[in-house]
């Protein structure tokens, strides 16, 4: 069990309101990702759920029980920190078993659970080492091990992968996703990496300056961004967004078109521009187009290879049903 309900939760540090009152429900078993630019309040929100940060106002309920005044140790949640926060004076075995020891569990049962967790995380060979003798990836696993041994009602992750190198990050991302598939426990995952958000989440919460911009499934957010911020934030490469006559033609203040929803031709099309840089990824090619009169630069993504070079003329045609339209307030027009 692990349904988490935030009711008009707000947070101020001194006079600065970091999170204005906010409502959010995280269903049991859901993988929810908080995503947003640096400083938008993701960690603060997560820490409030954990109990590590007091609420300025509002209430938090876990499984229908008000936990606003309950200390973190009594909320039944497990947290994985960006810095891993392992206990440097304890071996891996002790680290993983620590929450169980605090529950006064039987030593034999602790040993059993630690071994199970260590096996599933490939840590069996390192059980007697101290955290200082492990690599970053191994430390990360220990931190996860420490979280899973005790069957928490929900897992909280604060940018757990940001200290790992790119290859390891992708691997761990998969492992965490698989862990979720297997356990079906509620997980809340904070990241500023929208690729992590898109690939892992059942539900994404996009935050900006402490305000929820949109809540939805990854594909919801991709196909129906509710405002310009979400449109620009979700998707890689970023959506091309511009205002002006072309937007007005569409009956909107602002329009957006994703790089992958633009057809390219060397001879004819809606918009003409010149090729700046073409990035060849093999499977895809990103072409950055200048002088379209729409924006400084328009990015298009085409599959496979195409032979264009710097300075070539190029024609772009947006797929009409893929154009996102927004009003002057930046809100989506259906």
């Amino acid at each position: 069990m692990g349904q988490i309900v935030l009711d008009k939760v707000s947070k101020s540090f001194g006079d600065v309101e970091v999170i204005p009152p906010l409502d959010l429900t995280i269903e049991d078993g859901e993988f929810t990702v908080f995503v947003g630019p640096s400083g938008c309040g993701k960690s603060t929100l997560l820490r409030m759920i954990a109990g590590l940060e007091d609420l300025t106002s509002g209430a938090i309920a876990i499984d229908g029980e008000d936990v606003t005044e309950v200390p973190p140790s009594k909320r039944g949640l497990a947290m994985v920190f960006q810095s891993y926060a392992l206990y440097p004076h304890m071996t891996v075995r002790k680290n993983i078993g620590f929450p169980l020891r605090m529950e006064k569990m039987d030593q034999a049962e602790i040993d059993k659970r630690v071994e199970t967790a260590a096996t599933s995380l490939n840590l069996m060979d390192y059980l007697d080492r101290k955290p200082g003798q492990l690599s970053g990836g191994q430390r990360q696993r220990v931190a996860i091990g420490r979280a899973i041994v005790r069957d928490p009602s929900a897992f909280l992750f604060d940018e757990p992968l940001s200290n790992l190198d790119a290859a390891l990050r992708v691997g761990m991302r998969l492992e965490i996703s698989e862990m979720h598939e297997r356990m079906q426990t509620t997980m809340i995952y904070v990241t500023h990496d929208q690729v992590e958000a898109m690939t892992m989440a059942n539900k994404i919460v996009v935050l900006q300056a402490g305000v929820i911009e949109q809540v939805g499934s990854p594909l919801d957010l991709y196909h129906k961004p509710q405002n310009v911020f979400v449109a620009g934030f979700i998707g890689s490469p970023k959506m091309n967004i511009f205002t002006g006559p072309e937007a007005e033609k569409q009956g909107a203040h602002t329009i957006g078109i994703r790089p992958e929803h633009t057809d390219v031709s060397m001879t004819e099309g809606t918009w003409k521009g010149t090729v700046g840089v073409a990035e060849h990824l093999g499977s895809d090619t990103f072409i950055h187009v200048h002088n379209t009169g729409l924006a400084d630069m328009v990015t298009v993504r085409i599959s496979g290879d195409i032979s264009v070079k710097h300075g070539d003329d190029i024609y772009l045609t947006p797929q009409p049903d893929q154009i996102h339209r927004f009003d002057a307030q930046g809100l989506r027009i259906e």
Binding site: L52, P72, S73, L77, A78, F81, A85, L86, Y87, R150
Partner: peptide, 17 residues
């Protein structure tokens, strides 16, 4: 590091612990 103390809190330790 403050994180380590906070990890302790999350792991169910009270103040004395």
């Amino acid at each position: 590091p403050k994180d380590i103390i906070e990890a302790g809190k999350m792991d169910g330790v009270n103040t004395w612990g």
